[in-house]
């Protein structure tokens, strides 16, 4: 079974919520990204989401955009990211890895995506394709890779059903109208919508976009199968990119993990 699917299933069976943490590969450099991935795991992160940098990341707020720009200055490519995952797998074969990015970078490297083996990345999340579109249409048919679709507050009911059925990894519920790192969570709307998704699908539903505090995470975890944190961590990485002292991130993630348990 896919590493991501089995991990989320185990968590659900033991009534635990998943903590998914995001960083951009190569920000500030690939060695640091590798260190941070291990730090994530040591701090209680269940799933690592690696941002694949793109020149035109239309769904990202300023914090993650800048991280993409920094990574692109280091000429980070999908090939380098898969090599990074291989290195990570030398010592960690358990933690699922999701590659999150934009369609153009994946379809420019279809051969690479198709060659991903069992002991590599586990899932792909393409931000700029409609959820019900099958990635197979674009030549991504690798059985080792499952796909994650997004559902947003504006997704209509008839589409919720088809998107939910098409998502093989987990369903990513976008908790707000906005880009990554925005504010203004509407908790009641989120609860109702996640319940609606769960009527259509048994796949785990993660809540993300706009989770800025341990309190947000706790509230959202209560009505979902887990939470995704991105911008707040990416900001902390940026703040400490010179000193390389990331203790604060470890502490933040441990607090999150405790709060959602």
């Amino acid at each position: 079974m896919n590493r991501l699917t089995s991990k989320l299933q185990n968590l659900k069976e033991s009534n635990k919520k998943a903590l998914v943490a995001y960083l951009v590969a190569g920000d500030p450099d690939l060695d640091t990204t590798l260190d941070l991935m291990h730090l994530f795991v040591d701090s209680g992160v269940d799933v690592i989401e690696i941002g694949v940098p793109f020149t035109d990341p239309i769904a990202e707020g300023p914090t993650i955009q800048k991280a993409h720009d920094r990574a692109l200055k280091n000429n980070i490519s999908l090939k380098m990211i898969l090599e990074l995952v291989d290195k990570f797998r030398e010592t960690n074969t358990e933690t699922p890895i999701v590659l999150m990015g934009y369609l153009n970078t994946f379809i420019s490297h279809i051969d690479l995506v198709q060659s991903i083996g069992e002991n590599s990345a586990d899932s792909i999340l393409v931000v700029d394709v409609p959820g019900e579109l099958n990635l197979q249409t674009y030549g991504i048919t690798n059985p080792n890779i499952n796909t994650i679709s997004l559902i947003s507050p504006t997704t209509k009911d008839d589409r919720v059903e088809s998107i939910a059925k098409n998502s093989t990894g987990f369903i990513y519920y976008v908790t707000l109208r906005g880009v990554t790192g925005s504010s203004n969570l509407n908790i009641e709307e989120i609860k109702t919508n996640i319940q609606k998704i769960q009527q259509y699908s048994d796949a785990p539903t993660m809540a993300g976009f706009g989770i800025k505090s341990v309190e947000d995470a706790a509230t959202l975890a209560a009505c979902s199968d887990g939470v995704v944190v991105g911008s707040s961590i990416v900001q902390m990485i940026a703040d400490s990119s010179q000193s390389k002292e990331f203790d604060r991130i470890g502490k933040y993630l441990r607090e999150m993990k405790t709060a959602i348990s």
């Binding site: 239309i58 769904a59 369609l103 931000v127 700029d128 394709v129 409609p130 959820g131 679709s149 997004l150 559902i151 947003s152 507050p153 504006t154 997704t155 209509k156 589409r159 998107i163 976008v174 109208r177 906005g178």
Partner: peptide, 13 residues
């Protein structure tokens, strides 16, 4: 085609 974040799908429709 329509290659946009999910939040915009409703607006395009």
């Amino acid at each position: 085609g329509k290659f946009v974040p999910e939040t915009l799908m409703y607006a395009l429709e």
